[in-house]
């Protein structure tokens, strides 16, 4: 009962940002799909026309119209990740409501998990849903040739998950109490490195594994720091 109440509160607090992200993605995504039936891809995975089948099948991405949406998808995900982390982990310091939140019959770990859940739900219910909508539209409703392959949806999921990496990094940075130019800089530097390394592998499994590892490397110290911090 209390966990639900807490989850409801956290979701309600993230809602404006979540809706904003969804709204922007919806508007710009559809606009791109409808107005720009271009074949260009904004990814480093650009394949030239001479690529043969064997090479193609090794790659996650294929040239497709919907891939052009990828850039704003990535951008919005990163922004949402940062926004949610600021709202959840930095804002209470600003409004001095940590004592109100934490002096309760609930462990800090539980509070931490509820916040993460709310953030993930925010991503899923907004960006992931809109992305899925865009994807399905481009497969069934739009008139593209060739229609995008299913693994393009996975590509979108991968981009969205980068937003979560930024979320963890930004949260860790908020919760650390060191000076901004010392330990606090670590998550920021790490996230840049991680973004590079996550994009580096050419197979989906490895891409997601890298992303998962990045999240873990950031989430564990975040949990520890949150548990022990004196607010």
């Amino acid at each position: 009962m209390k966990y639900l109440a807490l989850l409801r509160k956290e979701i309600r607090e993230c809602l404006p940002w979540v809706l904003l992200a969804a709204g922007i993605l919806f508007v710009f995504g559809f606009q791109m799909l409808l107005n720009n039936p271009i074949q260009s891809i904004i990814f480093p995975y650009h394949l030239d026309d001479q690529a043969n089948e064997t090479i193609e099948s090794a790659y996650l991405f294929r040239p497709s119209t919907v891939a052009s949406v990828g850039s704003i998808l990535l951008f919005i995900s990163l922004c949402l990740g940062a926004a949610l982390s600021i709202r959840q982990f930095w804002f209470p310091s600003f409004t001095r409501t940590w004592a109100f939140l934490l002096h309760r019959n609930i462990t800090r770990t539980a509070v931490f998990l509820v916040k993460i859940t709310a953030a993930v739900l925010g991503f899923v219910l907004s960006i992931l849903s809109i992305w899925t909508l865009l994807f399905l539209y481009s497969v069934f409703a739009a008139d593209y040739s060739p229609p995008p392959m299913p693994h393009v949806w996975l590509e979108g999921l991968f981009l969205i998950s980068q937003g979560l990496v930024v979320y963890f990094a930004s949260s860790l940075s908020s919760v650390l109490t060191a000076k901004w130019y010392t330990t606090r800089l670590f998550p920021v530097i790490f996230v840049f490195m991680s973004l590079y390394f996550c994009f580096y592998p050419k197979t989906p499994a490895l891409n997601f594994l890298c992303t998962g590892l990045s999240m873990l490397i950031l989430a564990l110290p975040l949990w520890q720091e949150f548990r022990n911090r004196q607010f």
Binding site: R12, T95, A99
Partner: peptide, 24 residues
């Protein structure tokens, strides 16, 4: 526990705060 400043979640209404608190 009551401290000076009485910092509560500003976006909530009193009723929402009550429901939140009651759940605990």
């Amino acid at each position: 526990y009551i401290t000076e400043g009485h910092h509560l979640e500003r976006w909530m209404t009193i009723r929402e705060l009550e429901h939140f608190q009651k759940a605990f």
